[in-house]
Simulated scan of single mutants.
Amino acid sequence: MPRITQEEKAHNREIILEAAGRLFRSRGVKAVGIAELMNDAGLTHGGFYNHFASKNELVAEVCAASFLTSLASLAQTVEEGDREGASPLQRIVTEYLSTRHRDAPDGGCPSSSLAADAARDNAAVQNAYAHGVEGYLTGFASELLREAHEKGAALEPREAHRRAIGLLSEMVGALILARAVGQADPDLSEEILYAAREDALR
């Protein structure tokens, strides 16, 4: 049987990471077995260990990669600046606390979709998650400082970081709640999104 090239191996690894990211975010880490994951990726079960030493290693890498993608999107929004009368932070809040984002956990932000898994997982996964959260806080605090400067308002970096923590906590918490009650009480789910969105935008 011919051996695969390094390029093919790297490609297969990316396929596994992509499939794992989608499945973990939509269903949770514990609900997804390696056999199912590899089948979804279109690869053989035994091939998993050619790329990862364990499922825990995969989870940590998925967490890190998911945050990288999410933070790149945040950076792009910031780079675009104010659009249609809305600041980057306003657009981020509006999109994050939207029905569309609530209904697409498989491609959504890992800060909400992987929170419960990270809380129960090992140090490597929690480190990857914490690094991603810090990335969000840094981005939010930077934008809060920029907005304050443009308005001529005084805002210390420490206070901006504190406000960034509050903003991210409200966004993540609201999205988790909205998803948790979405099927049982759709109206309540929408109300949670609306209330949190309005509060955050203020």
Rank of each mutant, 00 (worst) to 15 (best):
A10R: 08
A10N: 10
H11V: 07
N12C: 11
R13V: 03
E14R: 12
I15V: 14
I16G: 05
I16E: 02
I16V: 13
I16W: 01
L17G: 10
L17F: 06
A19P: 01
A20Y: 02
A20R: 00
G21C: 06
G21T: 04
G21K: 01
R22I: 05
L23V: 00
F24W: 05
R25V: 00
R25Y: 04
R25P: 01
G28D: 06
K30A: 14
A31V: 05
V32G: 06
E36D: 11
L37G: 01
M38R: 01
N39C: 07
N39S: 12
G42V: 13
G42K: 09
L43M: 08
L43G: 03
H45R: 15
H45V: 07
H45F: 14
G46M: 06
G47W: 02
G47H: 02
G47A: 09
G47L: 02
Y49G: 07
N50W: 10
H51D: 03
F52N: 00
F52S: 03
N56G: 13
N56T: 06
E57K: 05
E57A: 07
V59F: 11
A60F: 04
E61N: 06
V62M: 02
C63K: 00
A65L: 06
A65Q: 13
L68N: 14
T69M: 05
S70R: 07
L71I: 03
L71R: 00
L71Y: 02
L71C: 04
A72M: 05
S73E: 15
A75W: 09
V78K: 15
G81I: 03
G81T: 04
D82P: 01
D82C: 04
E84S: 12
G85S: 11
Q90C: 08
Q90I: 07
R91S: 09
R91I: 09
I92R: 07
I92S: 07
T94V: 14
E95L: 10
E95Y: 15
Y96A: 07
L97N: 08
S98H: 08
R102P: 03
